[in-house]
Every structure is written in C-alpha cells, then in structure tokens.
Amino acid sequence: MKDKAALLLYAAAVLCVTLVHDIRFLAAGLAATLLFSGRSAPLLAARAGRAILVFNGIVSVSYAALALLRGAFQPEFLLRMNLRVFLLTYLAFLLVSRVKPFRALSFSPALLHLFTLTYGQIIVFRRLFDDFRLALKSRSPARIGTRDLYRNAGAAGSFFLEKALHSSTEIADAMRSRGFFRDPR
C-alpha cells in the first residue's frame, strides 16, 4: 500500500514539476523535496548532479553561446531548465531509494510477474556479459582491435539470444508445472 501511494505521489509530483514554470515554485519544490529526503539528501543530490552533468552541460553551454551571439540571452531559461531537470532526476533517485517498485505493481499479477522475471534475467545476463568482456581482455594486448571487439560483441549477442530463447521455454515449462496457467494443456 505504502509503495503504491509513493508511486502515485511520484507521478503527481512529476506532472506538477512539468506543469509549473515559475522558477520560485520550482525552487520551493526542490527545497521541500530535499528537506523531505532527510539525511540521504546530499548523496541523492550528488547522484542526480552527476547523472545530468553531461547532457545539461552541453545544452546549457551551447544555448548560452548561441543566445549571446544573437543578443537574446535569458538567464531565467537556463535556471528554469536546469532546476526542472535536476528536480525530476532527483525525484527519480529518491523514488528508487525509498520504494520497491515491484511491490507498487502488486495490483497486476501479470505485470508484477513480468517485472520480476525480467529483472531476475537482467541480473543473470549482466553478470555473464561481464565475463565475455573480461575473457577477451584476458587474452588480448592493452589495446584491443576493432575487429576483435566486434567479433566478441557478436558472439556475446548470439550467445545471449540462444540463452534467452532457451530460458523462455524453460521458464514457461516451469510455470506450467507449478500450475501458473489456468488451463492445463
């Protein structure tokens, strides 16, 4: 219940942040959110800052350069854009740190099942994928050639494709054997 409420609250907050354009309100929203997150605020703020640094940096700098050239520079635009993006990113990190999204999805068993299954597979695949990368590194000079990188990526891609298709049948069989599907075949 708590998680569902938090998810709804997050959705409402996101909608508000994109509907409100007054910089004072956005700043007040950010201050309130920071206060609400308590001791984790500095850590979350640092993560959000890092996450938006590159894209916002490029957009801000190129906007400033172009607008100054045209003599139409508006500092409030820069402030509003960066404030809004930072607040939205911060809200996402706050949600992830406080809420188990799986529990928030409990209203739909199919969706919940899909999510859990996918997440589990991602964790398994991600760990194995790392080994493909390291195994190439282990037999290669410091600078790995482009051809080798593509061949390795191709081998990894087709391995995971085979594995995915195999797992999909296996998971479906396992679900069937545990009576997950209503109509037996």
Binding site: L117, F125, L161, K163, A164, S167
Partner: peptide
C-alpha cells in the same frame, strides 16, 4: 508470451 518478453527484454 510473458517469459518470452522477459528474456528478450533482458537480451
């Protein structure tokens, strides 16, 4: 369908 989407998403 569901396991297929799940594993192909992981893929």
């Amino acid at each position: 369908a569901i396991p297929r989407v799940a594993v192909l998403t992981a893929f």
